[in-house]
Each structure stands twice: as C-alpha cells, then as structure tokens.
C-alpha cells in the first residue's frame, strides 16, 4: 500500500469491522502460537510433575532444565543433531551453488543445445520416475547408508533453476560484457559478477532448501537402513513420535543417567523444541527475502 491512501484512511475511527478483524487476527495468532508455547512450557516443566498433576498451560509449574540436560547427554540425539546440521550446511551450499551455476549457463542464448537442455528440464516438472525407481537407482549407485545421499539426490531442482534464471535475466548484460572484454571466462563471471549481485535470490533459495534439508525425515526413512548413526534428528523423532516404536523410546532414553524428574514425554518435548529452535531463529531475518522470492518464483507475467 502506498502512503497516500493510508494517511487518508487513518483519520477515520475504528469501526466494528476493525474491532472484529483485529480480534480475529489475534485469535488466529493465538491458535498458531499456543501449540508451540504448550510444547515449550512442557519442555521446561518437571516431567514427573506433568504426569502426576496433569498438563501445565501457560507457565512451567516446576521449572527445570533437566529435560534439556537429558537431551544433550543422550549421545544418539546429539549425533542426530550433528547429522542434521552437516546435511543442512553441505546440502544447502551444494544445492544453491550448483543450481545457480547451471541456471546461469542456461540463460545464455549462445549455449549449444540450450533448447534441448531446457526442454529436458521442463519435462521433469511434469513427469517423474517416482519413489520406487528413484529408490532402486539410489541403491544401484551405492548411496544407501551413505551421507552423500543427502547431498547428491536433492542437489538440483529445475523449478529452482527457473527462479534463478528469471533473476539472472534482470541483471544488465553490460556488467558481464566489460568482464568479458578483459578476457574473463563464464565461470569467473558467474562467481565474481553474478553471484555478488544475486544475494536476494540466493538467500531465498538457500532458505527454502535449508529448511527442507533441516526438516526432511523421509530420506532417513528410506535411504538409511543399517547405519543408524546417519539418521538426522527429524527421522529420529519420526521413529520415536509416529511409528509403532513409541514404546522403544524408553530404551532409547534409558542409557545415560537415570533421572527421576524426566519422562520420555518431557524429553520428547525438549527434543522437539531444540529441533524447531534453529528454524524459528533464522526465518524472521530472511522473511523479506522469501516474500520477494515467492513472487519471483510464481507465474511469470
């Protein structure tokens, strides 16, 4: 909205519509925040107390850090966090730099076979081999139970490639031409001219892919069979939370010091909070980028 109509409108008083609208927005925000708050409160409340005296609603009744201590003392959980962090860091850097590089090459009209490569990409937007053939391929490539599966399989995506291409096209050609006259090759131009000018779109794709890498649990479910130390935290939680192995949770948590105040439930809450924390921390700072990026990526014209 521009400033003019806003100042014009501001003179008016709050109508009943406004009151209803503001109230509704507050209710919506409460409905979104409260489930997270509820989990947060329980992660800081004494686990046995929760069991004995029922749930706590707004503030911890018996505040404690024991649940978090238990989480960080569990070697399996800590390892799973490590896998998630490594996978997110390496996977996101690989995805963003690789996809951007390919997209830059695809924007050059002089590229040999450009039309063929672009139609090859477009086909992938409409049709895919699906779960089982992809799984069998990954197995043939020897990527089952390998950390590389997290990096290689999601490294490129033609949809993100299009978003990059749309952005690169807006960069004035004159900037590249001057570098070209100095004898620079395309890869140098990409890393030294294009990348520094493309921070908004790089940040947008990095955010989306980073969140995907951090949140994904399915790769761990199907591609990691025996090397369970390669499971990311989301898959670990998935096994604990969603599957029939819920009872095995006790076994998972029982090694380490036996703590009287801690229950599987309270540790689960704490693990969930630790898992969510990085996402909540990062995303408000990148909000302006992804709003822009959403529009870049949506339908042209």
């Amino acid at each position: 909205m521009t400033a003019a109509p806003k100042s014009l409108r501001r003179k008016k008083h709050l109508t009943s519509f406004d009151v209803a609208n503001y109230s509704m927005m507050i209710v919506v925000c409460f409905l979104i925040v409260y489930p997270l708050w509820y989990t947060l409160v329980h992660s800081f409340n004494d686990g046995t107390d929760t069991v004995l005296r029922g749930p706590v609603y707004f503030l911890p009744r018996l505040p404690t850090l024991e649940n978090y201590v238990a989480v960080f003392e569990n070697p399996e959980i800590v390892a799973a966090f490590g896998v998630s962090a490594a996978r997110t860091a390496f996977g996101t850097v690989a995805h963003v730099s690789f996809t951007a590089m390919v997209a830059y090459a695809f924007t050059k009209k002089r590229l040999i076979g450009r039309r063929i490569w672009l139609s090859m990409g477009t086909v992938t937007l409409f049709f895919s081999g699906g779960l089982i053939p992809t799984y069998l391929l990954v197995r043939q490539l020897g990527l089952i139970d390998s950390f590389l599966v997290y990096i290689l399989v999601p490294m490129f995506n033609f949809f993100h490639c299009i978003i990059f291409m749309n952005f690169f096209r807006t960069i004035p050609v004159s900037l590249e031409e001057s570098a070209q006259i100095d004898g620079a090759h395309e890869f140098w131009i990409f890393t030294h001219v294009i990348v520094p000018l493309s921070k908004p779109v790089l940040a947008t794709i990095a955010l989306f892919n980073g969140v995907f890498n951090w949140n994904d649990y399915f790769y761990g479910v199907i591609y990691i069979n025996r090397q369970t130390w390669l499971l990311p935290i989301q898959t670990f939680l998935f096994r604990v939370v969603a599957s029939s192995q819920a009872h095995a949770m006790l076994n998972i948590y029982s090694h380490g010091v036996v703590r009287v105040t801690v229950t599987p439930e309270s540790i689960r809450m704490a693990t969930m909070m630790v898992t969510t924390f990085p996402v909540i921390c990062v995303y408000p700072f990148l909000q302006r980028y992804f709003t822009k990026g959403m529009l870049l990526g949506s339908i042209k014209g």
Partner: peptide, 8 residues
Amino acid sequence: FNYLPMYG
C-alpha cells in the same frame, strides 16, 4: 536423477 528413474 530424473531420467534414469523414468527409464526405471
């Protein structure tokens, strides 16, 4: 990663 699975 796209075309071999299609063949598959």
